[in-house]
Design a binder for these strands. Sequence first.
DNA 1: ATCATTTGACCCCG
DNA 2: CGGGGTCAAATGAT
Length: 247
Amino acid sequence: MEDAAATLATELDGLLAMARELEARVDGDQGAPGAARELCSALAASVDRAVRLAGRGRNAGARAGVNGQLRSGRKAAAAKVRTQVRVASMQDLGPLDDGMSWRKYGQKGILGATYPRSYFRCTHRHTQGCAATKQVQRATADPLLFDVVYVGAHTCAGAAVLGGTEQQLPPPAAFGQEQQSPPAAAPEGVQLPAEPVTPFSFPSSPASSWCQLTGSYGYAAPGGGLGVDMELEGQLDELFLHMSEFF
DNA sequence: ATCATTTGACCCCG
DNA sequence: CGGGGTCAAATGAT
C-alpha cells in the first residue's frame, strides 16, 4: 500500500511541477506553444494515472464533496479528465496526442451542441487490453476550442512509465509535426459542418495555442444548454488541494 | 491486403 | 421515450 502511495506522491509531484511550468509558460511567455501543448498533454496523462492510482486506494479518492455529497461508494470506476484545448486556427491544428494511438469508433451529435462528438479508443484495445477512451468535441460557440475528455487508464506499452523511483516523461511523445500533413485537418477528426467560420487572418499576433486545465469552476456554459457533467472533477480539485496541503 | 474512418443501427441508462 | 455511448458493416486510404 505504501508503494502505491509513494508512486502516487511521485506522480502528483511531477504533475504539480508540470502544472507550475505550464502556468508559468502560458502566463509569462507565449513564445512556446508546442512546449505548452506538450506539457499539457503530459499533464493530462499524469492526471489520469494519478487519479486512477488514487482511485485504487480508498484513501485519496473516497471523499465527500464540499456540499456533503457522498458518492465514493461503488460509483468509482473510470477517471474522467476534462481538458479544454484551444487552437488558434483550424488550419494549423496541432496534433493532440498524449503519446498513444487513438482509433475513432463513433461520432454522434449532441443535443444542444452545434458540433458532433467524436469517440476514440486506444488502438490496442483488442491487442493489449487498453481500456482508455477519449472524447473530442468542439465548443458550441467556439470552433477552435476543443473539449477533450479522457476516460479510463492506459494499459498498453508506451503509454505510461510507472517506475516508482524514477520519474520521467514518456519520450515516445512525438510532438511538433506528426499526423501526416494534409492541409486543414482536425486534431482527431472532428470536422465542423457547414460553418461559415473561416475569417482567419490575424496580423502578427498568433496567440498560437494554449491549454487550460479546467479545475472545476473555470468554464461556464454560455447560452445555456451546455451539459456540465463533471462529477469527478470536484474530487480532482480536492485531491489537488490535499496534495498541495500535504506537500 | 490491411487498417483506419465513416455512418447508421442498436443498446443502455436516466 | 429520448439522449448518449458503443458496435458493426461498409467504405476509403495506405
